[in-house]
């Protein structure tokens, strides 16, 4: 743990250096234009100062984003429409619901594929095909169709999350449930174990490491799904809505703060699964 602090810090510092440099480079044009219009000669120092403090920069500097995040989290009431925490919660709730649905669907499909020859042969190609369709194309349709059926709000977004997150779970769980070798299955036969006993005592525990790996990918995909689900609805709330509104009005700082919030959310969720994984597997004596 201690040994990794220095490398991580080095990388973070590197990212900040590149970020600040890129901000100067990308925002310079606008700074020069402004200066030319008002007939001022820009020194390098002035250029940098301007590039890091524009109101609608092409690329906001890190401290601008930090200030924006501070203002919209700590200094706003959680119930305020301008609170980033409020918007994060909207997205998070859809993410979690979609993730739960996707995980359940994924596990159910995997069990079906393991135990049913017909499903084994026919379902997998469809599952793979489902993931080759760009989510941006299918998301509006899901929203529209569900809206037409009278379902709106959380569920349509969660459906898109589910659509993205069930896939890694199916793939991982099929592999995991099939991971016991022939000898272990024969062993169960020698004890005349029932199918259910073989499932609960052999296949399922053997699949745990696979499940957790899948859940991490599924959680990240689920968050992406929830955000994408907020884009086409003209949604008024959620990180996706913040991204969309930000891009309408050229509020790049707002976009970036929403992006960073989404990244932090993803990191926290995936980290949480990692923690549960560590606890579970060490309880099971597998780690």
């Amino acid at each position: 743990m201690k040994g990794s602090v220095l490398p991580v810090l080095t990388v973070v510092c590197g990212i900040f250096v590149i970020w600040y440099a890129a901000a100067v480079w990308l925002n310079a044009t606008w700074a020069y234009d402004k200066a030319a219009r008002s007939g001022v000669e820009l020194s390098t120092q002035m250029l940098i100062a301007d590039a890091w403090s524009q109101e609608k920069p092409k690329l906001p500097a890190p401290h601008q984003v930090a200030v924006e995040i501070w203002k919209t989290t700590v200094e706003k009431k959680i119930t305020s429409k301008r609170s980033l925490i409020y918007h994060s919660w909207i997205t998070l709730s859809a993410t979690l619901l979609g993730f739960a649905l996707g995980t359940a669907l994924g596990i159910a499909l995997a069990v079906g594929i393991i135990y049913n020859r017909t499903m084994d042969r026919s379902v997998m190609p469809w599952i793979i095909a489902s993931q080759t369709i760009p989510i941006l194309a299918i998301a509006p349709m899901i929203i529209v169709v569900l809206n037409a059926a009278g379902i709106s709000g959380l569920l349509p977004k969660a459906t898109i999350s589910m659509y993205l997150s069930f896939f890694p779970v199916v793939v991982g769980m099929v592999k995991g449930l099939r991971s016991p070798d022939q000898m272990q299955l024969d062993q169960m036969r020698t004890w005349s174990a029932s199918g259910a006993q073989t499932f609960w005592r052999l296949r399922l525990p053997a699949s745990m490491p696979y499940l957790f790996t899948s859940l991490k990918i599924g959680m990240a995909a689920s968050l992406v799904g929830a955000i994408v689900g907020e884009l086409p609805t003209g949604a008024v709330a959620g990180l996706g809505a913040r991204l969309l509104a930000g891009s309408y009005y050229g509020q790049t700082i707002q976009i970036w703060s929403a992006l960073l919030m989404a990244a932090a959310l993803a990191a926290a969720l995936v980290g949480l699964i990692g923690l549960i994984q560590r606890i579970t597997l060490s309880r099971m004596g597998m780690a």
Binding site: M183, Q184, D186, Q187, M208, M286
Partner: peptide, 26 residues
């Protein structure tokens, strides 16, 4: 009782848990 060439113990069960496995099943 059948003893395979490889021990084939379940890594997620203790030694006691492994020996107990057929007893649970039966």
């Amino acid at each position: 009782g059948y003893v395979f060439q490889a021990a084939g113990l379940y890594p997620w069960r203790t030694i006691g848990g492994n020996v107990r496995l057929p007893l649970e099943i039966m």
